[in-house]
């Protein structure tokens, strides 16, 4: 029972508010931009095992930073649900007859769009810093992968927000989850360089496959295979959407 109008209106609200909150955009882009500039430029000439010689570190880093941007902006999508909860707006959403699945899909599509916009801004910025873009079909495939990545983390945020009540709790928990996911994913360096036990953990990090798939399509280098990566991402995002729909159906709002 998916109601298009409901999904659309929730999506539109998110977009309207995104473009009204310019400072939020700048804030969310600041961190990955600094990473690109300092990490990317600073280590430009380093070489390390696992990094093919034909690909410089900057080329290697950009898909990782795009993944990071998606991870953080998407996971914080739950924050706007927490805000709505605290400002009482979530009650207003939940007393309407809109189907719970449509409500969750509306929230997801709104946040996925804003995460995607952030990631594309980072991609353009990296081009200015010297990133060599592939041809258009590869760029379009990378957009699909970006959507899948953001879906997974948006839903983690949404599920958390249906359980937690306040800002502080939420940001503590989300940082506790997001930073390890980021560091384990190989966004900054090849996972193969990590000690075996930690490397093992990285196989449970969805972002590992996300970053790998992005590298596959954007710089033509990946450790697993793009097909495997995309299958894992797709399965996970479908499962996560179902999970948040389930949590939202159950949640008591007040």
């Amino acid at each position: 029972m998916i109601q298009g109008r409901v999904v659309y209106v929730l999506w539109r609200r998110e977009i309207i508010k995104y473009f009204r909150a310019r400072s939020r955009i700048a804030g969310a882009i600041g961190m990955p931009a600094f990473m690109l500039i300092f990490q990317g430029m600073g280590f430009r000439r380093v070489e390390f095992p696992g990094l093919p010689e034909s690909i410089g570190y900057f080329q290697y880093l950009v898909p990782g930073i795009i993944g990071m941007t998606l991870l953080f902006t998407a996971a914080y999508a739950g924050m706007s649900v927490i805000m709505d909860k605290q400002f009482g707006f979530l009650k207003e959403v939940m007393v309407t007859p809109a189907s719970r699945v449509s409500i969750v899909l509306g929230m997801i599509s709104g946040s996925a769009t804003t995460s995607l916009i952030q990631a594309l801004i980072i991609m353009m910025m990296s081009v200015l810093l010297g990133f060599r873009l592939p041809f258009l079909p590869a760029i379009l495939s990378s957009v699909v992968i970006m959507v899948l990545i953001s879906m997974i983390f948006i839903n983690i945020g949404l599920i958390l927000s249906s359980v937690l009540k306040d800002f502080h709790g939420f940001s503590t928990v989300i940082n506790f989850i997001a930073f390890p996911l980021f560091l384990l994913s190989g966004a900054l360096f090849p996972v193969s360089n990590l000690p075996a036990p930690i490397k093992f953990l990285s196989y449970f990090d969805p972002l590992t496959y996300g970053v790998d798939a992005l590298r596959g399509v954007l710089i033509g280098h990946c450790e697993f295979s793009i097909v495997l990566d995309v299958c894992i991402l797709l399965t996970l995002s479908v499962l996560m959407v179902c999970a948040s729909a389930y949590f939202f159906r159950r949640a008591e709002i007040v």
Binding site: I16, K17, F87, G88, F89, E92
Partner: peptide, 15 residues
């Protein structure tokens, strides 16, 4: 079939 006007504020003040 119902409508409710809540005791506590429930508007989106950003709209």
């Amino acid at each position: 079939n119902i409508g409710i006007i809540f005791q506590d504020p429930s508007l989106d003040i950003g709209l």
